[in-house]
Design a protein around this nucleic acid. Structure first.
Lengths: 223, 223
DNA sequence: TTTTTAAAGATTACACATTATTTTAATGCA
DNA sequence: TGCATTAAAATAATGTGTAATCTTTAAAAA
């Protein structure tokens, strides 16, 4: 009944904790609720041991953020995550990354870079589930302190959609290897504070990731 | 009591009509409710002749969209629109415009361009309030049909924030003149389907607009 | 003037009534 | 028997009233 209360939240992308909102979002991001699933308020109220209204309010907030769709008189559903969604999300991230990253290249601290190195180390021996979490932490580190928190929030939301779409899919080993290499080069570029180099790598990095998932979805005929 | 029900909605950026959500958003965009104003659910329920829960749900949705902030146990407020907000919004629009516009340059119809010309004509003789609406319609035309509706929605939301910040401010005549000239050049570039030219103008157009409002806010010590 | 106390006002959550929708079962027809 | 249409029951969404809790405001005392 309350299993999702005990499962860890997708830190650090979900900042609010211990709210119905956070629980539902967490369950969407971890694909406990799948794309298109009905989100029935009475059921959710029972699951999270509360009444209907708080659930409805959480769903409305999630609707505003784009994770949930609501049809009048017909209730809420997890937003449809399809091939087009993936394309849209990747294209938005491809706009945001260079914008956010430029600031980071110039303003990041040595401490930041050390932390990134630590995450990179863990990646070498991580399972694919752990890898995904480390990858998220790595990139979160590079965006979270940007002065434009509206843009950061946008990044965060789109990233959560990616997580939702990817969470019941196993990464293949060669893609992980490739991705780790790209991360290494990013840290390298950061050390030299070379904006152009870092942006080039980032662009390639997102592009490769996009290609990988696009191919994956297509081969699974997910429309 | 019900005055805002009769006032026209900020078409076309507010698609849902006749809902509490739309009424509140409209009143924010038209600065009936100002930045930082408390949004007291009982008062709003009375104003829109409904009960508290529908209002709370509308506010939650608006919170998810970034128009409203909610402090637990302390209620909702119109989001703070300050100098930094303007900067953030303009920078996001500056990312989105070229992305959305590139598609439009290549895919727009002659009909679209005619409609833009018509709007431009009206601008010549418009009051500043009318001008703002026409300007919104002009740019909405160039983004609304893009395949990435997530990005379109983003654009729409940021544009609404601009409207909210600008709606109790009079535009000066020389800025309107300049702006009309820029619109003319955009149409010209569209006719030749020249992406580079249009993007250059657009960038200049947004930049000028940003400079104007930045200067305005600074000189009015709006932080 | 500052602190304490009391009152008013709002937020939150819950139970319930109404309305709409979805699902299930029943009926008629090929 | 199989299929489509219709009718009925179950389910869920929406909106209202209300009680409890927390905040804010105002007044009184130190």
């Amino acid at each position: 009944m309350l299993e999702s209360k005990e499962s860890p939240l997708v830190s650090p992308l979900i900042s609010e904790k211990s709210t119905i909102y956070a629980y539902i979002l967490n369950d969407i991001a971890n694909a406990v609720f799948h794309s298109g699933d009905r989100l029935i308020s009475t059921k959710l109220a029972e699951k999270y041991q509360t009444s209907i209204n708080p659930v409805r309010e959480a769903l409305k907030q999630l609707q505003g953020e784009g994770f949930v769709t609501v049809e009048p008189n017909s209730g809420a559903r997890v937003a449809l995550f399809e091939y087009n969604t993936l394309r849209d999300v990747f294209e938005i991230l491809q706009l945001l990354e260079p914008y956010l990253m430029t600031w980071f290249v110039e303003e990041h601290t040595d401490e930041d870079r050390l932390e990134m190195g630590r995450l990179l180390n863990e990646m070498e021996t991580a399972t694919d589930k752990e890898y995904r979490s480390l990858d998220t932490q790595f990139h979160w580190l590079t965006v979270k302190n940007h002065y434009n928190q509206k843009a950061v929030d946008l990044w965060r939301r789109n990233r959560l959609i990616l997580l939702a779409m990817q969470s019941n899919v196993r990464l293949n080993t060669s893609r992980i290897k490739q991705s780790i290499e790209e991360h290494k080069r990013i840290i390298c570029g950061l050390e030299n504070r070379d904006v152009k180099v870092v942006l080039d790598i980032m662009n390639e990095h997102i592009g490769n990731s996009g290609k990988y998932w696009t191919k994956y979805l297509l081969s699974n005929k997910m429309r």
